[in-house]
Amino acid sequence: MIRGTTRWGRRFALVATLLMVTLGAAAGPAAAHSAVVSSDPADGATVEVGPQRATITFNEPLQPNFPAMTVVGPDGNLWSKGEPIVDGRTLSVAVGELGPAGRYRMAYRVTSADGHVVDGERGFTLSRAGNGTPGPAANAQGGNGGSGDGIPVWVYIVGAIVLFGGGLAFALFGSNLGKGKNQR
C-alpha cells in the first residue's frame, strides 16, 4: 500500500480507471467505420453518358454481407440493374443506358470490416438525355438504400454513463452496505 493513500483516494483511482476504460471501449468501434474515398462517376461530376457500372471505393475491404446500392434518376426511378457486388474495397452495380438529363443519386449501404453498417449517397449529373428505359419507382423497391441501420454513437455514450454511474456507486457505497448489518 502506498503511504498517505486513503480509502477514498483508492476508490477515486478505481472509478477514474473504470471511466477511462469504458469511454475508450465506447469510442473505439465508433471510429473504425469504412469511409468512401472515391466513386465513378465522381461525386458532383457532370457526364454526357452514364457509366456501365456505378462504383464506390472505400478505404478498407468490405464484408460481402447484404450490400445495397441503387442509382435513382431525376425522375425518381431506378436506373441500376441487378444486384450490387462487393469486391474488396469496391461496391458496384450495373447501370443500363440512362434516361432524362439531371441529377442521379447513388445510394449505398455496406458492412464495414468491423461489422458496422455504413450508408450514404453520392451523386452525378447527366448533361445529355439518353434513351434508356427506367426501372420501377425507387420507393417501390423499399427505399434508396441508405437508412442508417448501424448502432448510433449515443448508445455507446449512454452505456458508458450507466457503467460509470454503477462503478461510482459501488466504489462509494458498496463496501459500506455490509458494515451496517455486522455492527449491530
Rank of each mutant, 00 (worst) to 15 (best):
I56N: 12
S112C: 09
I157F: 02
G143K: 10
P152W: 00
G167F: 09
G73I: 00
N77I: 00
G167T: 02
D114T: 06
G9I: 10
A13V: 13
L19W: 09
G44D: 06
G28T: 13
G99R: 07
A101G: 12
E48T: 11
T125D: 01
Q52S: 14
R11H: 05
G123L: 02
P64G: 13
S39R: 11
R109M: 03
G82L: 08
A30D: 07
T55S: 15
G167R: 02
G148F: 13
A169K: 01
L98G: 03
N65K: 09
R122I: 00
G88S: 08
V117G: 10
A25W: 03
T22H: 04
I157E: 05
Y108S: 01
R122P: 00
S34D: 13
L62I: 06
K181W: 12
G44I: 11
A160H: 04
G99V: 11
M1P: 09
Q63S: 15
P74G: 15
R11E: 06
Q183T: 10
N144I: 05
A171F: 04
Y104M: 07
G96W: 14
R10V: 05
A42E: 10
T22F: 10
M20I: 15
G9D: 11
V49R: 15
P152R: 04
L14S: 12
M1A: 15
A45C: 01
T55D: 08
W154A: 07
S34P: 03
A113K: 11
G24K: 03
Y156H: 12
F164N: 02
R7Q: 14
E60D: 12
N144C: 03
N144R: 10
T133I: 05
T5S: 04
N65H: 11
G76K: 08
A169V: 07
T5L: 13
S92H: 05
S80C: 01
N182S: 14
T70S: 13
V117C: 06
G143D: 08
G143F: 15
L19A: 15
A140L: 14
D87Y: 04
G76S: 08
F66G: 03
W8C: 03
D40W: 00
V72W: 10
P74A: 13
Y108I: 01
G82P: 12
F66L: 14
T57A: 13
I2T: 12
T133N: 04
F124P: 04
Q183M: 03
L98I: 05
D75T: 12
G9F: 05
G73T: 01
I85Q: 08
Y156T: 01
P41G: 06
P152I: 00
I85D: 02
P84H: 03
I151F: 09
F66W: 10
N182C: 01
A68N: 06
V162T: 09
L91W: 04
L126S: 04
V15G: 02
A42C: 02
F58R: 08
G166D: 01
I2E: 11
Q141A: 13
G115K: 04
P64Y: 07
E60F: 06
K181F: 11
T17Q: 02
N139R: 07
G165D: 01
V153I: 10
V110L: 03
